[in-house]
């Protein structure tokens, strides 16, 4: 298996690197710099780093004011507080005026692990998706995370970037080209399409290998940009493979699975299964145990793929 790096690490490194290139890039944090990895930027560019303390609502407003004055602020905290606590500030101060603020949300999903339900945000994508004009990127590995930061800087408008705490395998090569809003077909297949995002992308690849051993040809699609979503790649997959399985480290209510279902139910309905956190909270535990308990595994993708193939026309 390739080298494992958490996307939050790549986020911190990318901020340092692009901070050299973009003099108007500033970073805000809410007393979590060591965890979100903005501490790297703080060390490299101390004059452009501002700790806002444990006050996420104010941080989002400060970011709005900076953006309204020509800066590109990255406002960082855990997903729970960036998207959850500060939802209304993000909606009204950043989303409504479509300000050029980038929200770097780390520790998203179940892979927070031991801290448990209060810190495991499985709802952030659902919340952010409802804000008009908000772009949402959920990178799968360190390479994609860096590329996503660059794309967010170059895009003018609010962007929500979702990063994980847990180290994940690097699946993309260094020459990988990231296109905002464009899904990536990682391997072709004809029997079923597995649509994944973030943490689940490497699981989807593993599942495709397992399915192959059983004589099933699975297509794997990485949806790194959840909004705006790449409808074309989804419709093509539905038409050509006739069955879809989505997999995400997020609630199946309002996240990737919902977004895919919204597109396909209108444009090309096919049998579909959604893997993700059900209508329940997370809990403390070790990451592999939690992922297994909540069904976010390559094995479950395989099972759901077989299930959905059976009911396809």
């Amino acid at each position: 298996m390739a080298e494992k790096i958490a996307t939050r690490e790549a986020y911190g490194n990318a901020l340092v690197e692009f901070g050299n290139e973009y003099e108007n890039l500033v970073v805000l944090d809410a007393d979590l710099a060591e965890a979100t990895k903005t501490c790297k930027f703080k060390a490299a560019h101390p004059d452009r780093f501002f700790d806002c303390g444990i006050a996420e609502g104010n941080m989002m407003g400060v970011a709005a004011g900076l953006a309204a004055s020509g800066y590109i602020p990255f406002a960082s905290s855990f997903a729970m507080f960036a998207a959850g606590r500060a939802f209304e500030q993000v909606r009204n101060m950043i989303g409504y005026p479509h300000l050029n603020v980038k929200i770097g949300a780390t520790h998203a999903g179940l892979t927070v692990g031991e801290d448990g339900a209060t810190h495991q945000c499985n709802e952030d994508i659902a919340l952010m998706r409802t804000i008009p004009g908000m772009t949402i990127i959920n990178p799968a590995d360190a390479v994609e995370a860096k590329a996503a930061v660059k794309a967010a800087i170059e895009f003018k408008g609010p962007v929500y970037l979702r990063f994980g705490r847990f180290a994940v395998p690097t699946i993309n090569s260094e020459d990988y080209t990231f296109e905002l809003g464009r899904g990536v077909e990682l391997c072709d297949g004809k029997d079923v399409s597995i649509v994944a995002s973030g943490l689940t992308v490497h699981m989807a690849l593993e599942a495709a290998e397992l399915l192959k051993a059983d004589g099933i040809s699975a297509r794997v699609i990485n949806i790194h940009t959840i909004k705006p979503i790449d409808a074309d790649i989804l419709i093509k997959a539905a038409k050509e493979t006739g069955a879809i399985v989505t997999a995400e480290e997020h609630s199946i209510i309002g996240g990737l699975g919902s977004a895919v279902a919204e597109v396909l139910s209108e444009k090309c309905p096919v049998p579909m299964r959604r893997i993700g956190v059900g209508d329940k909270f997370g809990k403390s535990g070790q990451v592999p145990d939690l992922l297994k308990e909540y069904g976010i595994t390559a094995e479950n993708i395989v099972a759901k793929a077989k299930e959905v193939i059976k009911i396809k026309k």
Partner: peptide, 10 residues
């Protein structure tokens, strides 16, 4: 007032 702080910081 938070937005005003951001503008003043800028």
């Amino acid at each position: 007032i938070s937005g005003a702080c951001g503008m003043a910081l800028a």
